[in-house]
Each structure stands twice: as structure tokens, then as C-alpha cells.
Design a protein around this nucleic acid. Sequence first.
DNA 1: CACCATGTTCCTTG
DNA 2: CCAAGGAACATGGT
Length: 287
Amino acid sequence: MPELPEVEVLVRHLQPLLRRRTIRSVTVFRPKMTRPNSIAQLKRALLGCSFTDLQRRGKYLVFSLRQGRSPKPIQLLGHLGMTGRFYLRKQHLPMPRHTAVVLGLGALDLIFEDTRVFGRLSLDLTALERLGPKPLSPGFNPAVFAVALHKSAQSVKVKLLDQTVVAGIGNIYASEALFLARIAPTLPARDLNLKQIQALTSAIRRVLRLAIRRGSTIPLDWEGTGPRDGLFYYGRPDQTRTAGEERLRVYDRAGRPCPRCRTSIHRITQASRSTYFCPNCQPQILC
DNA sequence: CACCATGTTCCTTG
DNA sequence: CCAAGGAACATGGT
């Protein structure tokens, strides 16, 4: 689920469904995921509140609520970690195996499920302060990006995962953006020239926008009863597609042909995480 | 058993 | 103080 496009699609899906609904119960199965808040703190803050809005910031979900007619807003921060999912479901059904938190909304429950327990749902919003510019806003541009990249000896791929540089890119779309920009992932961030920074800026925007658009066209199965559980990295599960229609051009495609030149895609490890690239289209040495 | 997995934070080292 | 690297978190798939 959890890079910017997946969170964006989830937020667009949930926002109109949550609006004006009131929280009537709060049940926490994984107390670690509400840290630094206790279960009691969450209940005290949320019981009786109604949702007024849901927004995305980077990979975070920002739920806005209001207690009765009180103008004082309450905000709740969600993060999906690696395997988290939010979805609405009829109440009184048996809880799924990895249910972390359930907000009872009357006829429906908002279920927060997370197998690996890396996700978060709390009243602590401070994580948002550390986020860099929004990649799809004018605040993210080659000049701003260049400043962030300029002083770092770290590889450009690792820099793309740094949420203070730009907020929302994860391991999959980092490889995808570098492929589109034809930049080698191992290039030290400070060595990118202006042209490359411009190319990467637009590649990031293009990759994220495209993923949102494609994700929005897929009939999502947020309750997780289907074959893909509402994930959309790998295309529509039900429909056959040709190689040229693959959503991801390089990620998880080691040994398969580059969609541009047919060279075999390579996989390397950077900062303990996999990177995929085409050694021909993304050469280490400038020509 | 081994290794891998869409993420963030904390701790250590230099 | 900062940058960079690695472990930790917890579980499941191959």
C-alpha cells in the first residue's frame, strides 16, 4: 500500500465516506501502534467526535474531527507502515487476524489492519513537521530540490527515500523515477547536474501522478477479500495485460528486459534496500 | 533454515 | 552539531 499514490487513492476513497460520521467506540488491539498515546488518551479524545475531513501529507493520513459543535478541531495521524490498511466494514463481523484499531461508527466500523505492526494511529502530529516539500506542488521544483541534493555525498536513490528532501516517495517509486529520468541510482546526490535535477523533478511528478491515476481506475477491494487486497502496484489482477502495459518498469523486475532497450534489469542493494535499474539507460558514467 | 518485503526511528560512529 | 550506516520494530511469503 504505502507510498504517496496508494495513500492518495485511499484518502480520496475514504474521505467522503467518513465525513460527518461519529466515533462511538474505540478498540485498540495493538497498543504499540497508538504511541505515544495510551488507549485511554485515544478514547478520551475521540469518543463522540465526528469526522470533518481527511487529507494526505506525504505518506501520512491526517484525519480531522470535531467534538460536537465545538469549533476546536482534533487531528489524528495515521501511517500505513509497510502493510497497513484502512477500510470501512459492517459492524459486528469477526475481527480480521491483524486488526490493530477499530473505530466504531454506528452501522460501520473503520478498521485499521496491519500485519507487520509498523503503522501508526495517534494524536501526535509532530512527524509532519519533518516532512519536506510536496512533490506534486510548486514548492517542489528544481531549485529547491538542488539545494537538498547539493551537499550530500549519499546516492541519489537513498536521498529520494529521505522524507525531509521530498515527502512521499518510497522504495518502489524511487527506482521508477530514476529510470524515467535516466539517472543511475548510485550517482552521489551532489554530482547531479542541473539538467538531471530538472529531469528527475519531472520524472518524480510523472511517476506519482500516473500511479494515482491508474490506482484510481482500479476497483479497490479494501476489505481484502480479493486476490490483491486493494493493492495496485502490480496491475489489475483480473485482467490480462501485455508486457508493455506493466505498471512498474523496473521495480522487482531483475533479469527481465528493460522496456526501453531490452537490456536485463539489475538489482543492487543500497542502504539495505533493493534498487532496480537499467544499466544501459541509466549509465554510471556520463557520456 | 535462509532471505526477502511498499517504512520510520533510534542508536552508534566518525 | 551533523551525516551516514545499521539495527530494530513484527510477521509472513518463498
